[in-house]
Design a protein around this nucleic acid. Structure first.
Lengths: 270, 270
DNA sequence: GTGAAGTAGG
DNA sequence: CCTACTTCAC
């Protein structure tokens, strides 16, 4: 089973790119972030024609997440509040979370807040949001131990995940509090699928539109797939497909694809 | 000699359209309106590659006129004030007038104010602007009797210049004061080149972007070439090329092309 | 640099 | 409907 994550920075502007990519890469599940459309505006027909079921949670202009799946998903929910019940409902005003289950694997698709700059109000929101996410995952893990947490995390955990021309200390997406918040989450029992197969630096999933970052390969690895133990063991590849970033009018992010071996049916219930 | 007029509604957005059109229609002079760029931003190289000399007078966002000519033009000037000296300089803040001479023919390229709605402040400005234009042409005629006055006049003189679904009375571009102001100008000695060859209605040069006007052919003939007597006699064709309006991302206007027979040199000095 | 929104002008 | 500008976010 192949699961991809891609921040597409407007599903309307990127529609042709996504359809072309899916045609070439018919993954089982595609997790999208930054769709930037309300649910009423989500372009459904082009994806349904490709044989995908659609699940989305969007808003005007900002954020927005979607799951595209070749199989119908079970147990789909949007936002934190269906899972974490003791929080303010306004935590779900920004559409950043969607989840569903396929073949016993719970996919959690996230668009973590960017945080603007270290110390800002948005930065505080990002750290608070990550605390809620921690609770959210704790709740999910109480029910299922097969979780694939995908998305744009807006955090590079290690310096090798960042091109070396950047000052990492106190830079947004690399500051210690952000990294710690993500480490606390991973400590619940998640491991980075990409790092199972590649321990080198210089692999990036996002390049700023500005300053010709892509041409100069000044990227960051901030789009991740984190797997619980058994899924991590089932991972047989995890690659970053740089191609879409090189097309005209690209998203600033490019897809990351993890492949899980199919569980033998005798183990499916374990 | 072929002289064309075309309101291109942003020279940057329409650059490819114009280059393609000029390649297919290598007119001697192309009069452009609504370039919508400052002189520093005017894209020169693509037109120079086609063998055109460029003369332009633009501003940010609005208005802007240009002359493209296969030959160098003489006596080029921009705005009213170089010709009509007793007016306020602010009459040239909006870039709507450019003129130059080719083979003894003075081309006057105009972007007449739209006027917004009858009775508005912009309407008053349009009528006042047309009075200044009257003075401007009187001055030019005192020196030369060979004038080709081209442009987007934002006035349809006769009801047959308008599709029949429009209420013409007191409609902007068709109101009596506008028509009278233009008639006063034409009375200086100008005649409509298009009407030398075609007296039928149903020929339009502009279709509103709204309400699928082009598909339904709900157009207006508001782009004109007005010629002084001898030039009018030399006119051998005047056609509206509807094709550019049917392309993707078109201007709302389409080119009008007049062809003048070449004057025998023995008459050139008359 | 790129996207979306709002606004003005047509 | 279409363009251009501005502001905002990333």
């Amino acid at each position: 089973m192949k699961i991809a994550t891609w921040n597409i920075n407007s599903i309307r502007t990127r529609l042709v790119h996504i359809v072309n990519w899916l045609t070439e890469n018919p993954v089982d599940v595609l997790c999208l972030q930054e769709t930037k459309v309300t649910d009423a505006q989500f372009p459904q027909a082009p994806f349904e024609s490709l044989g995908y079921y659609l699940y989305f949670s969007g808003q005007k202009s900002y954020n927005g997440v979607a799951l595209l799946s070749r199989q119908r998903l079970e147990d789909v929910s949007c936002g934190f509040t269906p899972i974490v019940t003791n929080i303010q409902p306004d935590w779900d005003e920004q559409k950043r979370v969607i989840t569903g289950v396929i073949d016993g694997v719970r996919i959690v698709n996230l668009y973590v807040p960017n945080g603007s700059s270290v110390g800002s109000e948005k930065y505080k929101y990002k750290l608070d949001w990550l605390k809620i996410l921690h609770e959210y995952l704790r709740s999910l893990l109480a029910v299922s131990s097969h979780i694939c947490m995908c998305g744009d995390f807006n955090i590079a955990l290690e310096s090798k995940d960042i091109h070396d021309n950047v000052t990492t200390e106190n830079h947004i997406m690399a500051s210690e509090p952000e990294r710690q918040a993500l480490q606390d989450i991973l400590a619940l029992g998640f491991a980075d699928a990409f790092r199972k197969f590649n321990t080198e630096g210089g692999h990036f999933s996002w390049w700023d539109y500005r300053a010709a970052s892509f041409r100069r390969n000044l990227g960051w690895r901030i789009d991740h797939q984190y797997l619980t133990q058994e899924l991590y063991e089932r991972a047989i590849s995890c690659i970053i497909d740089v191609t879409p970033r090189s097309l005209t009018q690209p998203s600033d992010h490019t897809p990351v694809i993890v492949e899980l071996s199919t569980t033998p049916s005798c183990l499916r219930l374990s």
